[in-house]
Simulated assay, not measured.
Amino acid sequence: MSTSVLFWRRTDIEGLERLELTIEPDRITATATTICLDAGGYRIDHRWRLDAEWHALTVTVERWNAQGHGLLHLERAGTGWRVDGLLRPDLEGAEEPDLSVTPFCNSFPIRRTPLGAGESLPLDTAFIDGPALTVARSRQRYDRQGPERLRYVDLGLSLGFEADLVVDENGLVLHYEHLFERVPPTA
């Protein structure tokens, strides 16, 4: 078992995330808190349970903002997803969740993107808007540019958005153009 703590800073707005990642032989768990000053300020806690191959099984998102407290739970149901216990037919075939406030979930498809430069992985996601606590189907693509470099292309809800990504040897984001950069904690 290995546990690590990662921090990401938002580069587009004022915000910071702390994520604790635990990798065990048969499962992966992550617990994070994101604090952001955007839209009047909010705090979002998210808890992930993944299988050993980095496929999300569940994610729980809890939000506190000026409108109050909210909670959303997404759970894999065969080839689809349940949102707060209800099966969502519109999410059938969506391969992974994509939570708007963190680059952590980009690691799931990044780890499955073929390693050859010029290779791509298109996929449908269950896109979670963290501040709004909504879930909608969206499409995206990851284009491999090199061993630790990819291009993210949104083909769905944010059609036209693209960003270069730099990742570490584990497929975890170091730099996400326009949005996030990993920062080391100070001693």
Rank of each mutant, 00 (worst) to 15 (best):
C105I: 14
A136L: 12
A132Y: 14
V101I: 13
P114L: 12
T22K: 06
A126S: 02
G130E: 13
D98V: 12
A32W: 09
L50Y: 04
M1T: 13
E162P: 06
L165Y: 10
I35T: 12
T34H: 12
D154H: 10
V101T: 14
D168H: 07
H178W: 13
G171W: 03
E148R: 10
A163T: 11
G171Q: 02
L174R: 03
W48F: 02
G171A: 00
Y42F: 14
R149W: 08
A117S: 14
L99H: 10
G93L: 12
T3Q: 04
I23Q: 07
W8L: 00
H46N: 09
A77H: 09
V5G: 01
R149L: 06
A56K: 00
H46W: 01
D154E: 12
N170M: 10
P184K: 11
R27L: 08
P109F: 08
P109H: 03
V135H: 01
P131R: 12
G68W: 13
I35W: 13
T186E: 15
L86D: 00
L37R: 15
G70R: 08
D90V: 05
G146Q: 05
G40R: 14
E92D: 14
G70P: 02
G118N: 01
N106D: 11
R27H: 09
R111K: 04
I110H: 06
I110K: 02
V5E: 07
L19Q: 06
G93I: 11
G85A: 03
T102D: 09
Y176F: 15
D84Y: 02
Q67H: 15
T33V: 09
G118I: 00
D38Q: 15
L86W: 01
L179D: 14
F161H: 15
E95P: 10
G118V: 01
E20A: 01
A117H: 13
D143R: 00
D84F: 03
I28F: 05
F127D: 03
R47C: 05
P122D: 03
G118Q: 05
T58V: 02
A30C: 05
I110C: 06
T31V: 01
N65M: 10
E75C: 01
L37P: 14
D51P: 00
L91C: 05
L121K: 01
H69S: 12
V59R: 04
L72S: 07
Y142H: 02
L174I: 10
L155G: 02
T125N: 04
R10W: 13
C105A: 15
R139V: 08
D168K: 03
N170G: 13
L50R: 04
A32I: 04
G70N: 04
S107K: 05
L21W: 00
L155V: 05
A32H: 07
D84C: 03
E75Y: 05
H69P: 03
A94S: 11
W8P: 08
H175R: 08
A52W: 08
T113I: 02
A66L: 15
T22M: 08
E177Y: 10
R82Q: 07
E148T: 07
T125F: 06
E14M: 13
R141T: 03
R88S: 06
